[in-house]
Structures are given as structure tokens and as C-alpha cells.
């Protein structure tokens, strides 16, 4: 039905993998291609999926202990002498705890370091609010020189890892813990800064990032049966935003919903509202975390609680359309 997406898209048996897995595989491939790539971990080797790299290239893997500020700053120093570091931890701690070091020693210094923030979003589940990072997009997006990417599935995470490795720029890769649907396939195009229109429509547009892209697709499919034509865009790169694609879609549908597993303030929703209010004033409804913290629960429970799943998206869209 759609050459950009998996043949199993709406099947119960669609493959489920966490995005961090794709990162782990991508980093090993990137490491084979480029000897300057090194990886650093803050005592989270297995859960961040940096483990395959650590095993394949033990001399290029550095265990930093529980010290995220030192980790990114050491990475800045390593990049100064020709290394290409990937620093891995949970997003709550990196970039949560070490923002100033990232700002000064990586961004202002313009050093090619990739911050890999695993376990972002509420989908982390039972660990609760402290470990569910929701402000990372805002933190990273505000930094000059920084590229921000939030892949929608493990295949896209692998591609993003390989693409970021080729760029000599500061970057942030946002990953998730739980298994989620693998909606793209090996040949789905991926280019940093280029959003993918996954489904064309004329009544409204949903622009999403991360694993929630699948929820947007499911909502769009359901609404199609109600004669509503919903365009769905995967904006995997939050910075730099693909302004052209977004403005083009806003011109066509004149109603935008954004969707992310992050605070909408400063997140993807914030970025798109900023863009459109300046270039093409359009109504933008920002779905995502609304000025709250996370809590313990399962992914399904939490996505429902925070109005992120397909059913909640449909409800939100209907409410907006009813009020019109």
C-alpha cells in the first residue's frame, strides 16, 4: 500500500523492537567503517545497547562510571584529537544532567560528538518519572550547532546512527526503551533534515516523531473510514526542521496536529508552532506531554493516560473538529 512503510504495517504480527536496538547495530556498522569512532558509557552498557560495539571494539570503548558530566566533556576532548565519540546514557542524565558541558565544550566548541539519550519518553514504563525524560528535545533544540534526531523505529534508528556518524557535527540521538512496531523497512529513505510524508491527506496533518508515528498512522487509518483524509509526516529530525515539507503540508490541509512523547513546550510541537506562526499562520494543536511529569505504568497505560495512543489522537482530533 505504501512503499515507504512495512508490508505488515497494520498487522498484529508486525515486528516489535526497541529503537535502542537499531542504534546498537548501527554503531557497530559505523565503527567498522570509521576507525575514529569511539563509544563512552556511564555504567549502562547493556541497556543503552552500546554493548555490541564494546564487544566488537574493546579498545575503542570507554567505561566512564556514573559520571555524565565528565563523560560528555571527555568526549569533547577526544574529538579535539581526532576521535568521533558517541556518548551513551539515559536521556534523564545525559543530556539531563550535563547540559552546560554539552553547551560549552561541544556546541560552542563545535565538536563532532553524538549524545545518545536512551529511555526517553514515558514509555520507559515502571521506572517512573525520574527516569522518563520529557524535556530533552527542548534542552537540545535550543543549542546552536546541535542536530536533534528522534527515530520512529529501530530500522530508522540504525540509519540515523550511520548518518550522524558521517557528520562532523554535535548531535543528539533520542532513543526509547520499550519494543515498538518496526514500521519502516530497509529501503525507506532516510536523510537528516528531510521529513517523510508517510501518508497523504487533505483534511489535516499529523506531524510526529519517535515511535508515536505509528499511533498517528493508526489514527489516520481509522479516520479514513470516517471520510477524513489525514496526512502523516514523520519529522524524525527536529533540528534542523524540514521547513519546506511542513509548510507545504500546512498550506494544503490548513490544520496541524503535532505528536511527541515529550513536553510540547520546546519540543517538536513548539518547533512547528514557531515555524508556522512566522511563515504561514496555521492552527497547530500540540499533542504530547502537557506540563506534567511521568509515572510508573506500562507503555499502553501511560500512552493512554497522556493521550498519546491512536484512540486518544482520534478523540483529540474529533474534539477539535467538533469545536470548529
Amino acid at each position: 500500500m505504501n512503499s515507504l512503510l512495512s508490508d505488515e504495517l497494520y498487522s498484529e504480527s508486525i515486528t516489535q523492537e526497541p529503537t535502542r536496538k537499531g542504534f546498537g547495530e548501527g554503531l557497530v556498522d559505523a565503527g567498522k567503517k570509521d576507525e575514529s569512532i569511539v563509544a563512552l558509557s556511564a555504567d549502562l552498557v547493556e541497556s543503552t545497547q552500546v554493548e555490541p560495539f564494546a564487544k566488537a571494539f574493546p579498545d575503542r570503548f570507554i567505561e566512564m562510571g556514573v559520571a555524565e558530566q565528565n563523560m560528555v566533556t571527555v568526549a569533547s576532548g577526544m574529538s579535539a584529537v581526532g576521535k568521533r565519540p558517541f556518548v551513551t546514557s539515559y536521556a534523564s542524565f545525559s543530556p539531563g544532567r550535563n547540559w552546560e558541558q554539552i553547551r560549552t565544550t561541544i556546541c560552542l566548541n563545535d565538536r563532532p560528538v553524538t549524545i545518545v539519550g536512551c529511555h526517553s519518553g514515558v514509555s520507559v514504563g515502571p521506572d517512573g518519572a525520574t527516569h522518563q525524560m520529557l524535556e530533552d528535545i527542548a534542552l537540545m533544540r535550543s543549542l546552536p550547532n546541535m542536530i536533534v534526531v528522534a527515530p520512529c523505529d529501530s530500522i530508522e534508528a540504525k540509519k540515523a546512527t550511520l548518518e550522524l556518524a558521517k557528520l562532523a557535527k554535535p548531535s543528539y540521538l533520542r532513543l526509547t526503551r520499550e519494543k515498538t512496531a518496526v514500521i519502516t523497512h530497509q529501503d525507506t529513505p532516510f536523510k537528516i533534515g528531510k521529513a517523510n510524508v508517510l501518508r497523504e491527506g487533505s483534511d489535516l496533518t499529523i506531524i510526529a516523531c519517535g515511535p508515536l508515528v505509528y499511533e498517528a498512522l493508526k489514527a489516520a487509518k481509522y479516520l479514513e473510514s470516517k471520510d477524513l483524509k489525514v496526512e502523516v509526516i514523520n519529522s524524525h529530525t527536529i533540528k534542523p526542521l524540514d521547513e519546506k515539507t511542513i509548510i507545504k503540508s500546512a498550506k494544503k490541509t490548513k490544520l496541524i496536529f503535532t505528536l511527541e512523547e515529550a513536553q510540547v513546550a520546546g519540543g517538536l510541537g513548539g518547533a512547528i508552532a514557531e515555524l508556522l506562526s512566522e511563515h504561514l499562520p496555521t492552527q497547530v494543536i500540540r499533542l504530547g506531554i502537557q506540563n506534567r511529569f511521568g509515572q510508573s505504568g506500562t507503555l499502553a497505560e501511560l500512552w493512554a493516560e497522556y493521550d498519546l495512543d491512536a484512540a486518544s489522537i482520534v478523540r483529540s482530533i474529533n474534539n477539535v473538529l467538533k469545536a470548529k
Partner: peptide, 15 residues
């Protein structure tokens, strides 16, 4: 943050 950067440089150069 200077010693961290210097240590990163020293580590990288030693590799």
C-alpha cells in the same frame, strides 16, 4: 570542565 577535556585529549592521543 578543563581537566575532563584535557583527560579526553590525553586518552585519545594515547590510543
Amino acid at each position: 570542565s578543563g581537566i575532563s577535556q584535557a583527560a579526553g585529549m590525553a586518552y585519545g592521543l594515547r590510543m
